[in-house]
Simulated scan of single mutants.
Amino acid sequence: MKLFHAATLSLLAPLFLSGSALAFDPLHVQRLLSTGECFRCDLSGADLSRAHLIGADLREANLQGANLAGTNLEGADLTRANLTGANLTQAFLTNVDFKQANLDEVNLSRATIYDANVFGASMNNLDITDANIFNTAIGIGGEDGAEIPDWPRLD
């Protein structure tokens, strides 16, 4: 009987542990909100809606599925961050660094995006409905869904 329980527990353990692997770390959320820095933090699934994260250091952070609706991320550094499936509806994204970030399936509807750096970012299946985008290489068209703006020549 003990062997049966041990075998059942070992088979079910991955199911219980896999759910917690996708949950954010509350200490990481607290650190971000109090210091504005959270390098390589696990914020997956966190509710950061309407937060003021101006200039936040979120390099390499896991924000997969996070709720950032209405959040002010002006000047934030999200280099190599994972934002897959994140909700950035009505977010303020001026001068944000999204270099090499994963923006696949991100909801950017009604977001304000000015002068954001998206160099090398993955941007498959973005929702940019009614977004206000200026001087940023996000748009409809192009090979991967990104439209490169017509930059002024420097000659």
Rank of each mutant, 00 (worst) to 15 (best):
A131C: 08
C38E: 05
G19N: 12
G142A: 01
L58H: 01
P149G: 04
T136A: 04
A69K: 12
H52K: 11
L27H: 11
D42N: 15
A66L: 01
N124F: 14
A21K: 09
V96S: 05
T112C: 04
D42R: 14
A101V: 07
R110Y: 13
A76K: 01
L12Y: 02
S109C: 11
S18I: 14
F4I: 09
F16T: 15
G36F: 10
A21G: 04
G145M: 09
T35D: 03
S34L: 08
D42T: 04
G139S: 11
G141A: 07
V106G: 06
F98V: 08
A91N: 00
S10G: 01
A111Y: 03
G65K: 00
R153V: 09
W151H: 04
N107E: 05
E37W: 02
P26A: 05
L3S: 06
S18K: 02
D155H: 10
L27N: 14
V118C: 10
L103Y: 03
R110T: 13
I54C: 02
N135Q: 15
S49L: 10
G145P: 11
D130E: 07
A66R: 00
N132D: 15
D47A: 09
D104L: 03
L73A: 05
L48F: 00
L12W: 02
A91G: 06
V96R: 07
A146G: 09
D155G: 11
A111E: 09
S122K: 13
L63R: 00
C41Q: 04
S10D: 10
N87E: 12
L154K: 12
A146D: 07
D104S: 14
R40V: 00
A81K: 03
N132S: 15
P14C: 01
L15P: 10
E60N: 02
R50D: 14
G120D: 10
G85I: 11
I148P: 03
S34D: 05
G45D: 06
E60T: 06
S34T: 14
N132Y: 12
A61Y: 05
A13S: 12
F39M: 03
A137V: 06
G36Y: 10
L63D: 02
G120K: 05
D130R: 14
D127A: 08
S49G: 15
G75H: 11
K2Q: 08
T35G: 12
L33I: 10
N132M: 12
P152S: 05
L48E: 00
D97V: 06
L78E: 06
